[in-house]
């Protein structure tokens, strides 16, 4: 009974606090997303110590040289996070994953476009609450002093670290993460598997509009179902001693 009361009151508080922070902050942030393949691979549970160390010795220094660029536009209590057009390098073009995270902080709803396997999905639902734990660490990112907060990844169950600044008082961030007292400027998954860091922050950008694209291709799916499917795929891959991230966007 006591738990229910606490949960309900927390829900209530969130509704209220959303209104308090309905400030009209707008801007554009460019994030660089780096995936560290060796770090991911060497944490797979089925490898022997020898295999892990061999991988580190051969490839350890050759990871993290390549970054994908993403743009987070925010304003009107909304934000949209999409991959920026890939610059062709020496003339070969691959199909890139179509990723979009759209957040409406006023309505507390989300519309995401995410791949799973060979299909693109359109996810809709309410913004889920992330249980952030606020830490005692500070760091500077692009001139903004950020506080550290940690949480558990809703799909992988691994640690997520966010560095947010209350100087941009909108509870958004890259990859759909948010709910903190300010904008997340850096996000890491499982310590060093994926690092997403702001490389440019522009506030009050003129002519920048946050709108959901009119045409959105993808199979519609509820957020919960998508999470469930992804978890299942992860488990199957690990049970069969495969690296799930070979075929999965982290």
């Amino acid at each position: 009974m006591n738990q229910t009361i606490k949960a309900l009151s927390v829900l209530f508080i969130i509704i209220i606090s959303g209104q308090v922070f309905a400030q009209n902050t707008s801007g554009e942030i460019i994030f660089e997303r780096k995936q560290f393949w060796v770090n991911i691979y060497t944490k797979l549970p089925f490898l022997t110590k020898e295999q892990i160390e061999r991988e580190m010795a051969v490839w350890g220094k050759d990871q993290g040289n390549w970054a994908e660029k993403y743009l987070l536009k925010f304003g009107d209590n909304k934000s949209i996070y999409t991959q920026m057009e890939e610059e062709q390098n020496y003339g070969y073009s691959w199909r890139q994953e179509e990723v979009m995270f759209y957040r409406d902080y006023k309505e507390k709803t989300l519309t995401d476009k995410l791949p799973l396997g060979d299909k693109d999905y359109l996810l809709t639902g309410d913004i889920p609450r992330i249980k952030w734990k606020i830490q005692n660490e500070l760091r500077d990112i692009q001139g903004y002093i950020c506080m550290k907060a940690i949480a558990e990844h809703p799909i992988y169950g691994t640690p997520v670290t966010a560095w947010y600044t209350d100087l941009i008082p909108l509870g958004g961030g890259p990859e759909g993460f948010g709910g903190l007292p300010g904008m997340i400027l850096m996000l890491t998954f499982n310590e060093d598997d994926v690092v997403i860091e702001a490389t440019s922050v522009k506030l009050n950008v003129e002519g920048s509009k946050v709108e959901l694209p009119k045409k959105l291709k993808g199979k519609e799916i509820a957020l919960d179902k998508y999470v469930e499917d992804k978890k299942k795929f992860m488990k199957e891959a690990l049970d069969n001693r495969r690296n799930p991230y070979n075929n999965l966007r982290y």
Binding site: V10, I13, S17, K131, W132, I134, Q135
Partner: peptide
């Protein structure tokens, strides 16, 4: 924050 520093609310 809750005792384990989980954020409940901010102002």
């Amino acid at each position: 924050l809750e005792e384990d520093s989980t954020m409940i609310e901010f102002t």
